[in-house]
């Protein structure tokens, strides 16, 4: 499978010359394999994805982790929604009461957005998941609720023996008093276990995290601990804080890379980067 990062910024699009390397667009990751096109989250990065999308693609599956604005704000600007010849499935987590379609309508309606969901020419199918297992073409997908405010899932995508896990917004340290020592009681463990590639939240410096406990995000250090616990082969640190410049991110990365125990394969997620998993 081919994985491309279209947006890896957290919380708010934050373009600018000081962020040219890692990018300012919010969460959006594309997976392609033969004719399959899966898009993880519809942050502002999905706009560029839509403009340049392979015209031979006739079906797109968008998997939303949750409905915080930075993960859906690009949907209205995704060109394939305006093409009636493309089948689009939007998958997303169930809430306690209100349906996914109703919750998406809050974004696809004035005054937030002028075009209503029902007016989109592609007539997207809305599919609710929770802690579920389902298939999209050759992919076996597991979704599971994870520790983040509001209904939020992470995804484990398996193609043959290859596993890619995506948990962009996640605070596993909040739900475990002895983090990271107890896999059974660590949010997201089953999703990430032994993955070939993990994309995981790493929004804060350790000093920033102490005043933001419960906001649903991880420090660099906690993200690395999670990767070590789950024994992933490689991790991309994702959901960069909108206030962190390229220089800040590089400094944080150098620090965490120096201090980590297991010498994991680590990278800062970077807009435009492409990975191949076989």
């Amino acid at each position: 499978m081919k994985i491309r990062i279209w947006g890896c910024r957290g919380s708010l699009p934050s373009p600018g010359p000081e962020k040219n390397i890692f990018g300012g667009n919010t969460s959006c990751v594309q997976i392609t394999h033969n004719k399959t096109c899966i898009i993880l989250d519809g942050g502002s990065g999905i706009q560029r994805l839509g403009i340049g999308i392979d015209q031979s693609i006739t079906k797109i599956d968008i998997l939303l982790t949750h409905l915080h604005i930075d993960h859906i704000m690009g949907l209205g600007f995704f060109q394939p929604f305006y093409n009636p010849n493309i089948t689009i499935n939007i998958w997303g987590p169930s809430a306690s009461k209100e349906g996914l379609q109703q919750r998406l309508r809050r974004y696809f309606s004035p005054p937030i957005f002028p075009v209503q969901l029902k007016e989109l020419p592609s007539k997207p199918n809305i599919i609710e998941i929770n802690s579920s297992q389902f298939e999209i073409d050759d992919f076996k997908i597991t979704s599971e609720y994870v520790c983040h405010p509001g209904p939020t899932v992470g995804y484990r995508l398996q193609l043959g023996d290859t596993v890619f896990t995506y948990i962009p917004d996640h605070e596993p340290a909040l739900g475990a008093s002895d983090y990271p020592n107890n896999p059974e009681w660590t949010s997201g463990y089953s999703l990430a276990k032994d993955a070939d590639l993990l994309i995981h939240d790493a929004q804060y410096k350790t000093s920033e995290y102490t005043s933001r406990v419960g906001w649903g995000h991880s420090s660099f250090a906690d993200a690395v601990k999670f990767a070590e616990l789950t024994k992933v082969k490689k991790m991309l640190l994702f959901h960069h804080d909108p206030l962190h410049t390229d220089e800040t991110l590089k400094e944080l990365f150098a620090e965490i890379y120096r201090d980590q125990h297991q010498k994991l394969e680590l990278e800062l997620a970077q807009e435009g980067n492409i990975y191949f998993l076989t």
Binding site: S131, E144, Y145, G175, A176, S177, W185, Y189
Partner: peptide, 14 residues
Amino acid sequence: MSSQQIELILSRQL
């Protein structure tokens, strides 16, 4: 080993 569901994890933490 599988992890528990998040609702159980948070209940234990509480």
